[in-house]
Write a protein that binds this DNA or RNA. Structure first.
Lengths: 246, 246
DNA sequence: GTCTATATGCTGATAGAC
DNA sequence: GTCTATCAGCATATAGAC
């Protein structure tokens, strides 16, 4: 038990710390201290910090993939030859990571956050690991086209991108919504969250007009200095005041 | 010119490198080499690496805030006392960072990515800096309520969150869409991108049903091992195969 | 497998010449 | 303001006792 347990404890600690503090932001000393193992154990069991990162990834990626395949298959089977129900396809796309996030034992939850953090990290190894998920997304493109046959492929891609953004942001920045809503939104009810997310995305897929029917916006075209800037993570009144030089 | 130019060059280099490689992932040596200045210049001009980070933030945050305020004001003025047009409010929320992203001189573009990266970074200083943007978002909550008076506050918060996710993800992970669409989507046309994004979000705001009218999903409730898992950044077939142990 | 001790290099920060 | 030289500390990784 001893050896295997050490390995698992290292993986757990690394997963959690990487998810919270970035790959470069966590040292092996921090990881081994958190895992209550000796510093040298990481290099003994994994070879290097980089190899540890990949081990954290691969430990759960297999289960994730297996579960995803079964869910997709279930939807196709239910539909028979009929067009796929849009809401179900979007549910298959968005629900699984949300379920992982709500894992009461926190293990899967941490892994999902770890993966989201990996996307944000700039290390080449990370990129290489994550840039391989394109093939899988093509399954969803196909499924979405079966659900909305009249929609052009370009529109499918963009709306899929927007839907992934909703999910990704929910994984990484739910704390921000907490700060905004100040208790109005129940952030613990992941079942309701998934239903809201699917409904919002489905409405976008179904009801957004194609590009040619969207009018150009006339706002903010006047001022010489360009248009207002507001951004997800930074347009902060106090921050901007601090930044002001007058 | 010499001193001020050095400061600017350091800020430019730090902004770019932090955006790409994380705060912890970039050393002062890398920054000063990139900026073609002496290593000691950072500590002379800014005091510390941490202070440099904050300086990068504050350099452009003021302009960002100023532009945002003027755009919001323009929309309110155009509406007079009438209810605000939903699409315009969403345009005010989503368009500015997209415009910054499309800055041909790349300076503003890098800053937006820098800010998105800050959100992903776990350093306490970052968190403190970014957690102050809540007040500004309340303006948009109010504006959205004026645009959709019948919508409950809870729904407004969630849909605002989803819309911010679309924008945030577009800033950080547009390369993924490029990989998926393989040339079908034009990622250079930010004006079209903004129109698509606003249209998708507006459709979600307008047409998504409230929670009580969204049916629960029956998929994936059967298997003992839980439901499929698919996530934005990781469900990779090859990766999962590598992770498999059989 | 687990530990201590250590090798080697890079980190942020500073002192002091110019 | 800019440079060189250097500090003290921490990083990853490894060698070798137990």
């Amino acid at each position: 038990m001893a050896g295997s347990d050490t390995k698992e404890r290292i993986l757990d600690a690394a997963e959690r710390l990487f998810a919270e503090h970035t790959y470069a932001g966590v040292s092996l000393r921090t990881i081994t201290a958190e895992a209550n193992v000796n510093l040298a154990a990481v290099n003994y069991h994994f070879g290097s910090k980089d190899a540890l990162l990949q081990a954290v990834f691969h430990r759960r990626a297999r289960d994730l993939n297996r579960e995803r395949v079964s869910l997709l298959a279930e939807i196709e089977a239910r539909a028979g030859g009929r067009p796929l129900p849009l809401d179900d396809v979007l549910y298959a796309l968005l629900a699984p990571p949300m379920r992982w996030m709500s894992d009461p034992e926190r293990g899967l939850s941490v892994f999902v956050q770890f993966l989201a953090r990996c996307r944000a990290d700039g290390t080449p190894e990370m990129k290489a690991l994550l840039d391989r998920d394109v093939r899988h997304l093509h399954r969803f493109v196909t499924a979405l086209q079966k659900a909305l046959p009249q929609l052009a492929a370009e529109e499918i891609y963009w709306r899929l991108h927007f839907s992934l953004g909703m999910m990704h942001y929910t994984i990484t920045d739910l704390s921000r919504l907490e700060a905004i809503s100040q208790g109005v939104c129940d952030l613990e009810d992941f079942e309701a969250l998934v239903r809201r997310m699917v409904a919002f995305a489905a409405a976008g897929f179904r009801n957004a007009p194609p590009l040619r029917e969207i009018p150009a916006f006339a706002i903010g075209q006047t001022a010489a200095g360009g248009v207002a800037g507001v951004q997800a993570g930074m347009d902060d009144e106090r921050g901007a005041r601090q930044g002001a030089q007058d």
